[in-house]
């Protein structure tokens, strides 16, 4: 590692003051699962590392239809917390797909969003959930919609002196969900990840469908046209396949050394269909349960 100064503030105010002072030369450290590899290989060279693990940002609160998650909520909490499972079970399914058990011990929700890997699960899930992020700096707070937060590969709307403090999602009931991912090897980032959330009405028609994809562009994307095409439809296999095709055909994923763009597109279509099918099945089941 390149030498740096280390600060472990105990209040958000202190942390923000440090960031305000050092701006570009400072780096926030949360779970360290993305930052420390870069430090180890001298690819990141901050002058100051501001360790935020001492801040009280690990709360999980559910009230009036909202679930509020602190930025320091760890991946393993998403996997294991009953509150989260009750109010937003898609987070559990997504968290299980993240890296290996050691990554989930330390990696954080805020870090995952701030790091903004295009193939990461949580940014895609938050995009599907229409989550809102609370972001703080020495000069105040603001709220950003998840879909506006990521602005490119590994880049976000965060200013250098800002910290993500909280993520808020609505806990709409009776929703079916699915996260489908295709990774080259167990425990790796997926080539493509697809998140589907579906609500059906009493008559079994799609009341609301959301489809978000990761790994297919420089940031997570919502398949708005596909969502639109599903609304009010009876979710037959053909309808779901049609919607997945609509989503797929609007994508032009990048090629890299590990997968070609056209193959990623194929995956987006197949995983999209599978995710929708599973989400619909779940939606029908929970709608049935609710109706009883």
């Amino acid at each position: 590692m390149h030498p740096f100064e280390y600060a472990a503030p105990e209040t958000l105010e202190d942390a923000l003051a440090l960031l305000h002072e050092h701006r570009d030369e400072a780096k926030v450290l949360a779970g360290g699962q993305s930052l420390v590899p870069l430090l180890n290989y001298r690819l990141a060279r901050p002058r100051v590392v501001v360790d935020i693990n001492g801040l009280p940002l690990d709360g999980v609160r559910a009230d009036d239809g909202r679930l509020r998650l602190g930025a320091l909520v760890r991946h393993h909490q998403l996997e294991e917390s009953d509150t989260i499972a009750r109010h937003c079970p898609v987070l559990r399914e997504a968290a299980r797909l993240i890296g290996n058990v050691r990554v989930r011990t330390l990696g954080t929700l805020g870090g995952s969003l701030a790091h903004a890997d295009p193939a990461a699960e949580l940014p895609a899930v938050m995009t599907a959930l229409d989550a809102r992020l609370t972001v703080a700096s020495a000069s105040g707070r603001r709220s950003i919609a998840a879909r506006d937060f990521v602005t490119g590969p590994l880049t976000t709307a965060l200013a250098p002196d800002e910290i993500v403090t909280e993520v808020e999602v609505s806990t709409s009931p009776a929703r079916g969900f699915a996260v489908e991912e295709f990774a080259r090897r167990a425990g790796d980032f997926g080539l493509v990840v697809v998140v589907a959330l579906v609500r059906v009405d009493r008559g079994g028609r799609v009341a609301d469908a959301r489809l978000a994809l990761g790994g297919v562009a420089d940031r997570p994307v919502r398949a708005a046209a596909a969502e639109e095409a599903l609304r009010g439809q009876e979710p037959t296999a053909a309808v779901l396949a049609g919607a997945a095709e609509i989503a797929r055909d609007r994508l032009d994923p990048p090629s890299d050394a590990f997968a070609s763009g056209p193959y990623r597109r194929l995956l987006a279509g197949v995983l999209g269909r599978r995710a929708l099918a599973r989400a619909v099945a779940g939606a029908i089941q929970s709608e049935g349960a609710e109706a009883r």
């Binding site: 080259r184 090897r185 167990a186 425990g187 790796d188 980032f189 050394a257 590990f258």
Partner: peptide, 27 residues
């Protein structure tokens, strides 16, 4: 099934264990 040192014009693109894949127990 998975291992490959990817080299483009003499430049090795797989110099980490996250890119040079060897099987895990789950594979």
């Amino acid at each position: 099934l998975m291992e490959e040192v990817v080299v483009e014009d003499g430049i090795n693109l797989t110099t980490s264990f996250a890119t040079y894949l060897i099987p895990t127990a789950a594979d």
